[in-house]
Design a protein around this nucleic acid. Structure first.
Lengths: 125, 125
DNA sequence: CTGAATCCTTGCAGATACTG
DNA sequence: CAGTATCTGCAAGGATTCAG
């Protein structure tokens, strides 16, 4: 299908942007990332604090997702060279931008909790 | 820790609501669900149309996620008893409600595409 | 066309242990 | 305390096949 397609630079750019957007989407649209963003909010939290806040997340998932968020520039990681080490995480501006979305989803969940519960009961037949 | 906890009905309800909310969150906060919701939008689409719209989704993932969304009352599934069968999917009101959130995330992605790209380059060092 | 069921592979995610 | 590495299982997800 790409055969004989006029490959203008603009088109190439659009393709790259689209695939990147899709990639970011895949990275960030998962529950742990959302929960981290939601729990960070305007605060600055340590690794262990986050671990305690987010019920059910494992050490490994937390580090993995924090790395991912850092890589994409949604959180900043600051290391205090003390002993014991103290590592803190904060949302960046893009991170705070996404927080609005996540907040929206939380609101949505609570708004429609009843609808959904009813739908589930209806479904089990 | 639940030992000796005053289990008032209100508290029990809150707990149930919380765990349900968390469950819904886990169900819905995944990329395929988001992409389905985004692509459905205000339209009504057939299974095969959705399959074509959402690049990279497998037959199985599409059915699984549609079932999940149907179960939670975010989409309705209408079967036309023709031959060959024709099955259409549409967002419900809760589904359209969530669409606002998903749209927000799409906007966010495009807004910060540059930031993120830059952050990634910075990270690879 | 839609969807369920089957196999089969892969990679996720938990547990554990070890460094700085 | 924070992070990495290794091992292991189990479940997600792809390909295929069959049914309605």
């Amino acid at each position: 299908m790409t055969k004989q397609f006029r490959g203008s630079p603009e088109e190439a750019d659009l393709r790259r942007a689209d695939s990147l957007a899709r990639e970011i989407f895949s990275d960030v649209a998962n529950k742990w990332a959302f929960l981290i963003i939601e729990n960070l909010g305007e605060r600055t939290l340590r690794f262990s604090e986050l671990r305690n806040e987010i019920e059910g997340i494992s050490h490994k998932m937390l580090t993995q997702n924090l790395r991912m968020l850092e890589r994409n520039g949604l959180v900043v990681r600051t290391v205090h060279p003390t002993v014991p080490p103290r590592v803190e995480y904060t949302l960046t501006e893009p991170g705070r931008g996404l927080r609005a979305t996540v907040d929206g989803m939380c609101d949505w969940t609570h708004t429609y909790l009843g609808h959904i519960e009813a739908a589930r009961r209806r479904f089990e037949t």
